[in-house]
Amino acid sequence: MTNPIVTFRDVHKSYGDVEVLKGIDLDIAPAEKIALIGPSGSGKTTVIRTLMTLEEPTAGIITVDGQNLWQMEKGSKMVRANEKHLRSIRGKIGMVFQHFNLFPHMTNLENCMAAPIHVKKEDKASVRKRSIEMLEKVGLGDKLDNYPNQLSGGQKQRVAMARALVMRPKVMLFDEVTSALDPELVGEVLEVIRDIANEGEMAMVLVTHEMDFALDVADRVIFLDNGVIAESGKPAEILQHSDNERLQSFLHRFRSTS
């Protein structure tokens, strides 16, 4: 792949004695939409958390836009990146969380405006305009001055997505964003994700159990099993041609019968 936006090279992650990631190798192209699926415990959330700098890999190299994320040069040596280095790269990545993590003491609009103003030091007026646009795009233009606790789960998740989008990341990570929602609220969130995907500009990594949606929206499906990438390919290939037994039984469990 020429000029991938994200690369993983032999990334390992252990928690104490337990090794969760056992050597991940991955390239993500700019604007590529990837669905990351797998049984629980397989490490899929850990993969995107190491990219978002929420967890530090025990070994291996992650690069973003050509730059080494977790290591930096000091003189002639490579050392563990400091906070400054991490921050210089982290701004290119955005994340939407399973439990939304909206700021309860701010309105929806304020939630969206906080980071661009304080982190990117953009001017308030243009941030406000962009935030309102984003909230309108996710269908919540009428709830600008409401507080998160006044919203349903689906609405909260859409605000969370608007908040992440306002930062204009190059890569957007979705950590099981519908798993905490009541079934009837899942659809509205998936719709917004589909819209975002169709706009085309960002790379997206969706960790999800919504198998039908993932196979529909993704350019590539990656099946993670027991800490390694077991299968990777276009949705059609994965569905029809894979002879990986675990993958087939996994898909069988999660797909709705059509």
């Binding site: 982290r90 955005g94 993590n101 003491h105 906080a114």
Partner: peptide, 30 residues
């Protein structure tokens, strides 16, 4: 204050100080 709040702050690339000032302390003081 829930760990998720800190993580959201990190995801939005805030500094430690900004996270404390904008997210954690307003909630902690309450």
């Amino acid at each position: 204050v829930a760990k998720g709040q800190t993580e959201a702050g990190i995801a939005l690339n805030m500094t430690r100080f900004q996270r404390m000032r904008l997210i954690i302390l307003p909630q902690a003081v309450r």
